[in-house]
Design a protein around this nucleic acid. Structure first.
Length: 113
DNA sequence: AACGTGACAAGGC
DNA sequence: AGCCTTGCCACGT
């Protein structure tokens, strides 16, 4: 559970740190911003490695559906939701409006295979 | 060096 | 709207 200081996700974590209060970004957004297209999973992997005392706003990262990527009744889920609400973000049936709160506003759904 | 994995994403049904 | 499958790719082991 150590925060590594080298490697790709150092970049990722720096970008997560830039997300302003009251906004959110998706895992895919952060991956693209960091220059790792299609590496959304890596972002989750990087956040998972954060120590508890980290000041990086991990809670401002949600999935592409605007939902929290933790099991609904887990403590992590509740913690994240509580912090986001405290920052002024409103949930509508467990979901965040990314049009309203999305930080980067990349063209989701644009990339095809 | 190979293999399984994940706090994901997109598409099909 | 959900659930399932497939694609993804760096990381750890």
């Amino acid at each position: 559970m150590r925060l590594k200081t080298t490697g790709r996700y150092q970049i990722i974590l720096e970008n997560v740190r830039q997300i302003p209060k009251g906004k959110v970004a998706t895992y895919g957004d952060i991956a693209r911003l960091s220059g790792f297209l299609n590496c959304a999973r890596l972002v989750g992997y990087a956040l998972n490695s954060l120590p508890d005392e980290s000041t990086i706003p991990w809670h401002r990262v949600v999935n592409s559906q605007g939902k929290i990527s933790f099991p609904k009744y887990s403590t992590a889920y509740k913690t994240q939701q509580r912090i986001l609400k405290k920052e002024g973000i409103i949930f509508e049936s467990e979901r965040i409006d990314l049009k309203k709160y999305g930080w980067l506003q990349f063209n989701r759904f644009k990339i095809k295979r």
